[in-house]
Design a protein around this nucleic acid. Structure first.
Lengths: 252, 252
DNA sequence: TGAATAGTGTCTATAAGACAATATCCC
DNA sequence: GGGATATTGTCTTATAGACACTATTCA
């Protein structure tokens, strides 16, 4: 159904055969991934220690250069897997950071992604690697104001992240907060089956503020996004809660 | 307050002096801008006719390559001004499109931006240029579902946009819809002073659905984002409405 | 039985939708 | 005065927050 005439097609072909992409200087393009999980009522993120300059030995987000033959999303998934072992999680583009001097080597753009994972999947992955840290994410702003996040060690000490990675983490938190209310994204931070209490705790951790329990319950149960598994929690020393599962939309 | 030791700094310096960025192939990076306005109850966007291959003579969003010495935002503002004459408008990054073969020349990433403008500012700019079209934007989906937009001529005929520009326009509409409810973004599509009816019409055009007039009125007046100018509409053949102005937040 | 959390029912406050009534301008 | 839209006020309905009460499990 192409409307182009034959002569137009051959014009395009001859143009392409003569096109030399090397005449203009081009920036390098990297991807950085903020992998978020909920632990102990707060958000945490996966950091790696830089082994090479620039900013060697500083903690940073997992990142790497985009290859010429892969899409940005593919690059982000590859880099996340290489640097953390995480596969098959929610992964979404966040923002492209393009300040002129954000990297001292040369012009480097960073296409920032964020990923979400059930925290229980992280422990074995951390043990399998060196130079890895699960940092606690604290944002000094409310709601979705935005701005850099602070990332702390287990002992509470704040870390200085490499490059603009503190900005990237902050933006990931802001985006996640924004999407939580109107998209089924909270489930990505839990195992397949979960209780309403666990879902409630995840939402509170993401939003950084208490949520009314009753209203949250009603809202979730009437949202048609939850499906009762019929099973119950076990191994708890109180009344076990019903387990739910995220109901995938038929269109997806 | 840098924590790095002197030897670490010199290590970094020597690394940088020996770093050769040309050893890895790099993609080209462009910006494309979806300039949106509201006209006759619907959204419109600014298109330019491509004068060079690839896809010569097809309508496209204003776009251009990012220079090495400018940030992405600066590049977007520059390209928008060059291709449309528009300056000083709301401009925000949308998404980076990175499919491997989205441009037949070479690997080209497109950092998509969208901009908002009062439609009355467009007419003189269109007249000053050739190969320019204000296209009517129609999205075949509801709410914020997302997906490519359709762009039509004045006679209703649909245009085939170059590259992935239909996707970019669709994403701009989806983003705008999402931000309309909870950020003061609708004002960007109006002149400095406006009536509540005009603001109402803008919201309806963006969302693509009717909005309850009374409730909209109440919501806006109680939002503290509006400031009465004290003046009234003039030149209308009915009771003139009060004029309002967007109240900039003191923090901004 | 008691501790602890799950789950239900009811009241209240707030915001949105519907709609009627009045106000103000130009012709 | 008539036409047209602005503006105000009231009633109804939906939803969130608050809180009391009952249910179920394990130690």
């Amino acid at each position: 159904m192409s409307k182009g005439s034959k002569s137009q097609q051959s014009e395009e072909a001859s143009f392409l055969s003569e096109y030399d992409p090397s005449i203009y200087p081009r920036p390098s393009v990297a991807v950085d991934i903020t992998l978020l999980a909920v632990r102990d009522g707060g958000l945490v993120t996966w950091l790696v220690k830089r082994r090479e300059p620039p900013q060697r030995s500083r903690w940073s987000l997992p990142g790497g250069f985009v290859h010429m033959h892969e899409s940005l999303h593919t690059a982000a998934a590859r880099v996340l897997e290489e640097k953390s072992g995480v596969q098959g999680v929610f992964l979404e583009q966040l923002f492209t950071f393009g300040a002129v001097s954000r990297d001292p080597r040369t012009r480097v753009l960073s296409v920032a992604y964020y990923a979400l994972i059930d925290v229980h999947r992280l422990a074995p992955l951390v043990e399998a690697r060196d130079g890895v840290l699960i940092g606690e994410v604290v944002v000094p702003w409310a709601e979705e104001t935005g701005g850099p996040a602070e990332v702390r060690r287990a002992d509470g000490r704040a870390l200085r992240l490499a490059f603009d990675h503190a900005e990237q983490v902050g933006m990931a938190v802001a985006r996640l907060r924004g999407k939580l209310a109107y998209t089924p994204i909270g489930f990505q931070l839990l195992a397949e089956c979960f209780t309403l209490r666990e879902l409630h705790a995840v939402h509170e951790a993401v939003l950084g503020r208490p949520l009314n329990k009753d209203s949250f319950r009603r809202r979730m149960l009437s949202s048609k996004e939850l499906e009762a598994t019929g099973d119950q929690q076990c191994g708890v020393e109180h009344r076990p809660a019903a387990l739910y599962r995220f109901r995938r939309r038929s269109a997806t």
